[in-house]
Amino acid sequence: MLPKEYAERFFSIDDSPALRNLQARTRGIPALVDLDLRFSQMDEFGDYRQIINVAAPPLEDLGSPATNAEMARIANEGLAKLVADHPDRFAGFCAAVSLDDVDRAIEEAEYAFTELGALGVQIYCHVNGQPMDQARLDPFYEMVARSGKIIQVHPNRTSAWSDFPTETRSKFEIWWALGWEYDLSVFMARAVFSGALERWPELKFLIHHGGAMIPHFAGRVGAGWDQLGARTPEDQKEDVQGYPLTKRPLEYFKMFYCDTATFGAEEALRTSIKFFGADRVLFASDSPYDPEKGPGFIRATIQNLEDIDLTAEERSAIYSGNASRILGLDLALASGARR
């Protein structure tokens, strides 16, 4: 979603060439801002509520650290108001933060958790091209781990990340179709080898798009990374010397949570559920970024889950039970409310 005041500010930014294309893209998806349209689309699915967050781009792309912190506050208060005003439609929200200033991000996340009731926080795969395992971010991860909230991870590569070193831009939207899944997978790997899950095993990273590449390359993640360092020359050994781990790398990758937003790809979703386990998968659809600009991916994801060989208990857990348990969310509302 784009809450009203946040949307107005977002579309008013006119000094960022990098944002122009995203502004145009966002204007072409009315359900991001039009509540009546979104509600009419949701009605197709009966007892259905959403957990919402602010749409891309990352806040770090909007301006100065001070501006981005201000936009985070506008976004979070707007999301909280949407949830309060429409509890039969929105079950909660994940807060926005800008990690270009870690102290401000911690302050904003704590405010969103304690004052606004946010269920978690959304971050991206890099901050202005900087990796997400840099030590300056440790206090943020420690705070969220202590809070018990989730960290929803969204990719953010652009066409500026070329496909080959000899080129200046990525072609054919490869940066999106394939690059985003690579970025999510790199985020997971750096979180594992930097020891984030070793130091804070209670961290709940929710990885978009079914856990990206990791479930589909479980052999390389498993037996392949059991041989970490075997392929590295002696003069590059520092590149494979991460935080001391007490388990196989594969076991840490299975500690992540994932969502079901695989764009209607049933076999991919089946693999994700098998890798992480049905108890670590949460329903999500990537709505409204489908060709219908709203209901298409919701419908396709529901159909996938109905077609996959799951028990009734597993299917119910993915639809809502896991969200209730992992997010500490009471999904029971007054009579007539949507689940």
Rank of each mutant, 00 (worst) to 15 (best):
E115A: 13
Q41G: 08
Q50M: 11
T271L: 09
N304E: 10
L62N: 07
A265D: 15
L184G: 06
F275I: 08
L197W: 02
V153Y: 02
D163W: 05
A31N: 06
S98W: 02
E314F: 03
K247T: 05
D307I: 02
R146V: 03
F253H: 02
S194N: 11
K81M: 12
A332T: 13
G229M: 09
L2N: 02
S170Q: 03
G28C: 07
H216I: 06
E107G: 12
L282V: 06
V127Y: 02
E181D: 12
L250M: 14
T260H: 00
A160E: 14
R89N: 08
F93H: 07
L19H: 09
P165T: 14
Q50Y: 04
E115Q: 14
K254Q: 15
A72V: 12
Q236G: 10
K171E: 12
E202G: 12
R9M: 10
N156K: 08
I308G: 07
L310T: 00
D43M: 09
G210M: 05
C94I: 09
K81D: 13
T168M: 13
P215T: 02
L269E: 04
E173K: 11
A212H: 00
R270W: 08
A284R: 01
L137Y: 13
G229K: 06
K149F: 02
Y111I: 00
A24K: 13
F39I: 14
L305W: 02
R299Y: 10
M213A: 13
R73Q: 13
E110N: 11
F256T: 03
I29L: 10
N304W: 06
A212L: 04
I318S: 06
V121H: 00
R199Y: 06
Q236H: 15
D36H: 10
D138F: 11
S64Q: 08
